[in-house]
């Protein structure tokens, strides 16, 4: 959808009747995200076990690190053995791998995709670029600290981390989820204003709803 498509406009029906269209209000449901309390005791533990053993990764490579995700599907590393599978749509994924540096343009798409994922959702940040900007830290067009914009569950250091490091990172993520610490989605909902302010500070042409389902 281009920027012009989002502007308010008037269209005419075949009978010549004018219809006002305001895409930002008509096409999107911009309710604020909610924070959901975990269920009780054993049920939540069982749910966390299932979430940890079935990690569906959103197939979205944001930076150069995406090249390190591909070998995980090949016979040599074969992440499917560990319950890690790739999903083409954010609606069905539960893990977002931010693979390397994030340009401001990509950050917009990342935020949109992240917000379309369902609670609980987990973010794995790959490479030193997501921690402090790495070799791009004084670039005019990339962000430096990812956790100012999205809640991060696991960082995997390196430039670039090898696929083995990614597998180790996923194992770390599983441990966190099983321990009930994978609460990024609730954290995002609770500190929504802070995250939004940070995002808007860096994205100058904000042409999307504040929260896009």
């Amino acid at each position: 959808m281009s920027k012009e498509d989002l502007e308010k406009r008037t269209v005419y029906s075949p009978e010549g009747e004018p219809i006002e269209i305001d895409p930002l209000n008509d096409y999107f449901l911009d309710l604020r995200p909610e924070s959901y309390a975990p269920r009780n005791g054993v049920i939540e533990q069982f749910a966390n076990w299932a979430r940890a053993e079935s990690l569906w990764v959103l197939g979205f490579g944001t930076g150069c690190g995406a090249i390190e995700m591909r070998p995980l599907m090949t016979p040599r590393f074969d992440a499917y053995r560990f319950g890690i599978q790739w999903r083409p749509t954010p609606r069905q994924s539960s893990v977002f791998v931010i693979s390397g540096y994030l340009s401001v343009k990509t950050l917009k798409r990342v935020i949109r995709s992240y917000e379309q994922m369902q609670n609980p959702k987990f973010v794995v940040a790959l490479g030193s670029c997501t921690i402090n900007g790495g070799m791009y830290w004084d670039s005019y067009n990339t962000i430096n600290r990812l956790d100012h914009y999205l809640p991060v569950d696991v960082y995997i250091t390196g430039c670039m981390p090898r696929p083995e490091a990614l597998l180790a990172g996923f194992e770390e993520l599983k441990k966190r989820i099983k321990a009930g610490k994978g609460d990024g989605a609730n954290k995002y909902a609770d500190n929504f204003d802070w995250y939004k302010a940070n995002q808007k500070k860096i994205i100058k042409d904000w042409d999307m709803p504040d929260y896009n389902w």
Partner: peptide, 20 residues
């Protein structure tokens, strides 16, 4: 080696445990 043979069961349980 591919998925574990019990993966389809876990996937279904996981999808039912989404909070939103």
């Amino acid at each position: 080696h591919g998925i574990r043979i019990w993966q389809p069961w876990v996937d279904i349980i996981k999808n039912y445990t989404f909070r939103s």
